[in-house]
Design a protein around this nucleic acid. Sequence first.
DNA 1: GCCGTTTTCGGCCCGACTGTTTTCAGTCG
Length: 576
Amino acid sequence: MISNAEVAKVLREIGEYLEMQGVAFKPRAYEKAADAVAGSGEQVSEIYEKGGLKTLEEIPGVGASIAEKIEELLKTGRLKYYEELKKKTPVDLGNLVQIEGLGPKNIKKLYENLKIKNLDDLEKAARAGKIRRLESFGEKSEERILKGIEFLKKSGGRAVLGFIMPVVRNIEERLKSLGEVEKVAVCGSIRRMQETIGDIDILVTSKKPRSVIDYFAAMPEVEHVYGKGETKTMVRLKIGLDADLRVVEPVSYGAAVQYFTGSKEHNIALREIAIKKGYKLNEYGLFSSGGGDRMIAGRDEKEIYEKLGLMWMPPELRTDSGEIEAAKTGKLPKLIEYGSLQGDLQIQTDWTDGKNSIEEMARAAVSLGLEYIAITDHTERLAMTGGLDKKKIVKQWAEIDKIQRKLGGRIKILKGTECDILKDGSLDLPDKVLAKLDVVGVAIHSRFNLSRRDQTERIKKAISNKHVHIFFHPTGRIIGRREAYEINMDEITETAKKTGTVLEIDAFPARLDLKDEHIRKCVAAGVKMSIDSDAHSVSHFQYLEFGIAQARRGWAERNDIINAWPLEKMRKFLKR
DNA sequence: GCCGTTTTCGGCCCGACTGTTTTCAGTCG
């Protein structure tokens, strides 16, 4: 079966090939279609199965011609049009365009003059000094290419947000503390709280731009300064990320924050609205485009949205996937707030693979203001973690009771489990033990490569057990390391709805599982979710924030997230 | 190639930077 990601990749490459040939407008059309397919919560293969060509055309950005191409891909696994383009210029586009500063036109030039087809060829040619001899290339382009290759090798290009956020916040705080800095805003994918980020974009206003720029470029975490001017500096950080600092005029601050927050698609949609209203929108402000370019708004981000006839919206929503229509009609969701969780329903301790004791975890949770936690250690099947069997878990209950007495009313410690789902969908603890637990979470930790059908049935069976409350990290993906196992998420969501099972949003930064598109479907279907830290040490509680971000990107409100509720309401829901 | 509170043709987001040019193409966000 061909996944959305694969279809999107082919469409995107077609766009790039057409760009290469200097074709007008079509490249954008293919790029847009690729984005739509990649971002679709539903598999295009399933959309096609259900309704054929016509339903494919309902995907925004997909028309008759691209629908046919998707059909051909789904049916035959190949696409003639794509293959012909590839034959004409047989290069590894997917990887080559990853190099910063290298686009389709230059890739074509490199291929035609030096027969460069892939990253290896590129690196060799650059090292041999061949590239600088090409027309319109020079020494600097060659250097940049080598740096780009190195970056790609080292980091895969993107960093997991939750892991680098402390670095970002530290830089932000230091900038704020500078006397000459007035306002600071971290923008881009960080402000949108995306799962991963490609670089760090920071905006400031200041009366002494030069001195702020000098400070930034000289920070100890800077490895290399790419460039430094009057209003902007770009640096490479030692952690392997690029960071840009821009100084903007106060009168344009709101417009700049809006612009640099993105997403690109969201901004395009906003500018289209501006044009329809007879305005022009750029990073300096909103202007009336009729003679003289009078400024309508710019100092304040909210004002820009309002002048465009939209409600201001949280950055997490800015993906051009319905938020603009909602903002037009006043139907934006009231997103779950940061800091609004009252409990955490997945926590590991030193009874299995956690680093801290039950008491240490409980005390850490108290200090964060949580009102309840569930201790959910692994079960026997996960031998490498020293998983608890039916006898050992009973012993743990006694320990929990003891610590509960010690901590008194400061926090409620619930007895739980992260029970393994076995190959056939049965569970790693007997029902009579599960029945005595406050919180039964289940999870897949083995046999990731079952067929889609078998995996789906396995999970459906597990969450249909009447003792099961929550399905932990439902897709199993780990960012940058492991793909999700094959499942039919729609069927699982449906079963969860029927059985009242909660689907987890695992907040651990490399998991963030469910994904935003799944969350949005759960919200629409009325399937409840929990946001859990999956903490394996006291320091991991801080990751709850990124789970909330994930939920917000999935349009979730407080009522969708059971551990944003008070203890009694939450427990009543689990017991139904 | 897509799309339509200007609709089935004629538009399609915008500005800055870089490196190489001597007036600009390519790329990026």
